[in-house]
Design a protein around this nucleic acid. Structure first.
Lengths: 364, 364
DNA sequence: ATGCTTACCGCAAAGCTTTGCGGCACATGA
DNA sequence: TCATGTGCCGCAAAGCTTTGCGGTAAGCAT
């Protein structure tokens, strides 16, 4: 009996030491810690915190008070293991420093946060190889699904197909894998470009050039169709030399512009597939000593913040980036609920914001 | 005996059903799945995959082959629970769409990926309240520590102190909580601004204005000191009306510029605490009809990509953003290893990139 | 033929949470 | 007084991985 008493005493001392040192070093309190402190079982604490009717109101109140004092929060790892969900969404973007992608990410994050999810961002650096790595890493991290904008190199979709085969939700935005039956949110580039061509015509332009992106990308194809149809609508013939392709980098855009400006019969209007391209074109046109828009009118796409800062301010198509992110997230959660069959396609409207770079006074 | 045989048969059937349907619906294979398939125990599979010498080479080879065929990857939740580490770093930034922050995040991510960590980004939207929420959410998510740039509203540090008290690594970049003993990486704003003042003087400017940020921020104080000392170095008197404070928003910067341009004795040079401010100032100066740099020279800070696109191109101080992110991550991992006492301060050099907005031909 | 070494492998616990089921104790009715 | 009922609470398992320790078999030596 005496021995037992001593053992109990030692245990108390041990417990004390544990609380004063180990507990300090320990970052988070667990149900077990609370249970030990309160002298009840772990399950009772769990039930009390979840307001289970089996636990008496007084005890429930007491447990909740202590839990809040000790800043208890459930361990998401344990919950994840139990519920088989991590509350993580993987997001793959070509890069993160471009305003467009950063803004879409903001939109995704806003919706995700609302739902108690958080996002893990992975950048593909416009490389197919890195994109595949990203998918693998995200799967390893046990994200519940992926929202992606494919890299400009991506021309085969096996890595994304793997997701679909595993029944993991997958949503594309802006650049999509055509032919895959998954939800996506894009803009109506076709119509947008048609209106650009019309706008050029209204301003007296006749030789309208288009600096496009890689041909396999849906956005390139989409906008190219708009370009061709826009020309037809306006009664212009398509001139092959006025359609140049570039790889979406500033350097390549400079080269493409260079090529256009060196034509025997140079264009009097240039449309860039995005604002980054248009900015590069603007620099190059200036370097050649041509006036914008008098000699060459210029229009971009995406309406980055700085479109208003450049001189002349850049006419551009607004891309509802934040909304695009929110929509992508919405589709993601739908997909999570409704399962693999779900594949809604959302097409967002755009708007042509007319600024100085394309308006020729005295025309019309 | 016959009964026992039947039971075994049923178990086999059950097992078959489990493999064919449940296993299909299941996203990831576990050690248990592999063990069942191979007819060995879970621990043997685990040891084989970790190349433990206790397992025979033949069996090890076989297990590794099957594991790779089945695309087995360890469940990070289980590992996290076991090792008490989540491999997640929380990153808090005022916003994500600004090129500066996006670029720093890229730097952090590069180092984190190398170490097998991934980052969880949380935006404070320049709000103290949201910043506190972010800290709480990240702690709840069991990040192993936080890398942060404080919001412009942040003037008390209790939420960050909580991290330090819990011995969670904390690293600041750019905007820091002064007085806290934690690692940080900043730039030498003091010296940078001094060189700006000198540059203005060299170009014949005499009334140099400074649009500063909120006074409690270290970057504001730091650059203000450089401003005052730079003036002294150049033999200029400090004119209080030439120092205006703004809240780092484009709108407020416009107001601040407006205020400066309405002075009886207007400035002939303006320095903005960052490029966003400088861009706003540029627009406003143009709106007033003044020429840059002839009437008013202009210099920014951070050297965003678009500094070269605006007209005139903007003189600015390069901020080594990507490097800053990498350094912040490096400090983070040091802190993780060395414990709470570690508090290295890194100060990165800057460079004044001179462009058209501040160079007056014919001077000197 | 028996005892001992060696080479392999499995049990179980820990990390944390939820929840079905079983169980204890007290109270009430017969 | 005994039996039934009710209100509370704890045990244990599941989710997945690692690892110390114990155990079994084969092989070799005596």
């Amino acid at each position: 009996m005496k021995l037992l008493f001593e053992i109990v005493c030692m245990m108390k001392i041990y417990k004390f030491v544990e609380l004063s040192t180990l507990a300090m070093a320990k970052r988070h309190v667990s149900l077990k810690d609370l249970a030990a402190e309160l002298g009840v079982s772990v399950s009772t604490v769990s039930r009390a915190l979840n307001k289970h009717p089996d636990i008496s109101p007084q005890l429930t109140e007491k447990i909740q008070r202590i839990a809040s004092e000790r800043n208890y929060t459930p361990n998401p790892l344990a919950m994840g293991l139990l519920k088989a969900q991590t509350k993580m969404i993987g997001v793959i973007v070509p890069d993160i420093v471009t305003h467009f992608f950063a803004s879409v990410i903001s939109g995704i994050e806003a919706v995700a946060k609302e739902k108690g999810y958080f996002i893990v961002i992975s950048s593909s650096s416009e490389s197919l190889e890195k994109e595949k790595e990203s998918v693998d890493n995200l799967i390893k991290s046990r994200v519940e699904g992926i929202i992606a904008c494919i890299s400009q190199e991506t021309n085969e979709y096996s890595h994304f197909q793997k997701l679909v085969d595993n029944e993991l939700p997958l949503v594309f935005f802006d650049r999509v894998c055509e032919g895959m039956q998954v939800p996506s949110v894009t803009v109506d580039g076709h119509k947008a470009v048609q209106s650009i061509i019309q706008h050029f015509k209204d301003n007296g332009c006749r030789r309208i050039a288009y600096i496009s992106g890689p041909n396999h990308l849906n956005i390139s194809k989409n906008r190219k169709e708009g370009y061709l149809e826009g020309l037809k609508d306006c009664g212009f013939d398509f001139q092959p030399e006025l359609l140049v392709e570039c790889n979406l980098s500033a350097e390549d855009a400079t080269l493409a512009t260079h090529q256009l400006l060196n034509l025997k019969n140079k264009p009097d209007a240039i449309f860039g597939i995005n604002d980054t391209i248009a900015f590069s074109a603007m620099k190059e046109i200036k370097r050649y000593g041509y006036k914008i828009p008098e000699d060459i009118a210029l229009v971009g796409f995406t309406d980055e913040f700085h479109a208003t800062v450049v001189e002349p301010s850049l006419t551009s198509v607004t891309h509802p980036t934040f909304l695009m992110g929110k929509e992508a997230a919405r589709l993601f959660f739908h997909s999570l609920e409704k399962g693999p069959a779900y594949s809604e396609k959302v097409i967002l409207p755009t708007d042509l914001i007319i600024r100085s770079s394309s308006v020729r006074s005295g025309i019309i």
